[in-house]
Design a protein around this nucleic acid. Structure first.
Lengths: 341, 341
DNA sequence: TTGTACGCGTTATCAG
DNA sequence: CTGATAACGCGTACAA
């Protein structure tokens, strides 16, 4: 189990050739067009396999002068930290296809403010680039910190001009309204939690996308509370807030929710008020995955395309390490539309 | 940004000493008890800092003969893959404290069955050990596959005698019933989705822990459907199932749920039936984090101690790499009890 | 405490 | 196509 790893040298000795030859054969750098050669190469491969040879990644890295690895960076504060698993899926697939490894790094925001303390991530070089998950806990002030590091860096969930990848939330919200309109709903509202500080871009974009949806479908009526700015006073419980919302807009026949996290208390509140979901009130929500996976409620979902976001981030990062183009334009990833319940 | 990394040699040249000296000073291997030496060492450190020197992790790895890195392994199938973020938090903290790195690896189950294809994880050596997240998609048949690999390996969420770390679900469920009993509830039920195939151990343990809870509190009445074996026929919608459950057990005053995913449709169903939560029916659920973070419903929660699980897994793995003890006993991590809503 | 020299496992170069 | 041989960057005996 913890036996000493086999080296190239040992394989070479056992196969009666030199280490360089083994390296070349295993890496497919020979044409092997002559039968004798092909046979010998097969032999080498067989010996390597029998001995359980596995190249040492570290040795390859120093030899090649590159790690072929990227780091996913997130804040790591327990209870605050969050990232979509589908995004890591996409990142891993993108890297794996290119023969790169993925290292996972947490960098609590507090460790960044203390300039005396260099976080582990920057104490050693171990990766060729960074994919940074921007959380609210990672306030925007940390962007320049990362940008100053001597490592190519791609941003997730940050809306800006260059080197970022983010989902097209505005268009998705508009499409959500369109979808409801096509289903015959005419009194469509928007429900979102309340944000005191500067909220995530998606809070703004989804709300604006909803308004745009009303406009393009010709729906009328103001059935929402804006997610920021002045509004109804705060509530102790999420469900109290949802109840108040439903009581203010008694004629709603459909609601688009910022997130499934809003839909849950909204549905509970609606049912208590005798408004059955989805019979009397259709509820559509943004979510990272199909809602049926999560809880089995019937909620048509705008699935955030995090997998594609991850893939795109990798493409961008790898390209970034090849050319050195710091001004690579950001990628806005489209949604696939509403997934019916 | 993508400037060439500074090497030890360059720092040495600039500081007017040899590379070996720089290495020793930066790694704190000199006593520096004489003032002249201390001054020179300071100088070296300053030069290194100014030049932005960062040791190359790969070079260190080959030199030391160990990677100081562990891999977290999960299945990676989009939509199926899942792991608690808090667990990765714990793993990262545990590794980081020891100066180890964490690499993230996905290994779709299908790639394992095809024995001709060696997954990337096992094509190179790049880590000193594995922490494997056992998902249903990773059926138990893959355990021997990993165990046969020449790498120390610790299991997450697998209940067995050796080299596994898992939460104490049975005791937690019992404590959940105790908690409800202490609050004055007397007609306590248990609600769980239905499993056809061999379910995760927690499905069995939580259910048995619940039964034990009834026993120790002296509560009577059979207000549950067993999670496996014969039972009511399947339902199209999670909420239909929840409704049927509530209609069969009309006198329930509290329910313990296998997961928050069960609590959501249960609450929606209860409210529709006019049974208000939590006024008429208290609902307690297992969950990976505080429910208020997720959606703001009032659900007292048995928070699965995944952070501690991660920490314990690292402790076990590191110890495993030091001694070679394959039979290290598993660690069962206790819950902290019910977190009130 | 210092500098020198070697070793770690690979890849890449360059004559044969 | 092959086998020496020289890097790659760092840690660490070794002798000074």
């Amino acid at each position: 189990m913890t036996s000493q790893p086999v080296t190239l040298e040992e394989v070479a000795r056992r196969a009666g050739v030199s280490a360089g030859t083994v390296s070349r054969v295993l890496n497919g750098l020979n044409k092997e067009n002559r039968p004798a050669i092909a046979r010998r190469s097969d032999h080498i491969r067989r010996v390597a396999a029998e001995m359980g040879y596995r190249p040492n990644a570290a040795a390859r890295s120093i030899s090649r002068g590159q790690f072929r690895a990227a780091a996913f960076v997130t804040c790591g504060d327990v209870g605050v930290d969050w990232y979509p698993i589908a995004c890591l899926n996409g990142i891993h697939v993108g890297l794996d296809d290119r023969g790169w490894r993925l290292t996972f790094t947490e960098l609590p925001a507090e460790k960044l403010t203390d300039s005396a303390l260099v976080p582990h991530l920057f104490r050693e070089t171990a990766v060729d680039g960074l994919i940074v998950n921007l959380l609210p806990a990672f306030s925007k002030s940390i962007v320049p910190y990362f940008e100053a590091q001597p490592l190519p860096c791609v941003w997730l969930n940050l809306k800006r001009k260059v080197r970022a990848v983010y989902p097209d939330d505005a268009t998705a919200a508009t499409d959500g309204v369109r979808w409801l309109h096509a289903k015959g709903y005419r009194r469509v509202g928007y429900y979102c939690r309340r944000f005191r500080e500067q909220p995530h871009y998606s809070v703004i974009d989804r709300f604006n996308g909803f308004l745009e949806g009303l406009r393009v479908t010709g729906l009328t009526g103001r059935r929402y509370w804006a997610p920021t700015g002045p509004g109804p006073s705060r509530f102790r419980q999420a469900r109290d807030r949802a109840t108040a919302f439903l009581q203010e807009f008694k004629d709603l026949d459909a609601v688009l929710c910022y997130e499934y996290g809003e839909a849950i208390p909204l549905i509970a509140a609606a049912e208590r008020l005798g408004r059955r979901v989805p019979e009397d009130l259709e509820v559509v929500a943004f979510h990272e995955r199909e809602v049926v996976d999560t809880s089995g409620l019937q909620v048509p979902t705008l699935i955030v395309p995090f997998y594609a976001v991850g893939l795109a981030a990798v493409t961008m990062l790898v390209e970034l390490t090849e050319r050195g183009d710091r001004d690579m334009p950001s990628v806005v990833v489209p949604y696939a539309g509403v997934t019916p319940a």
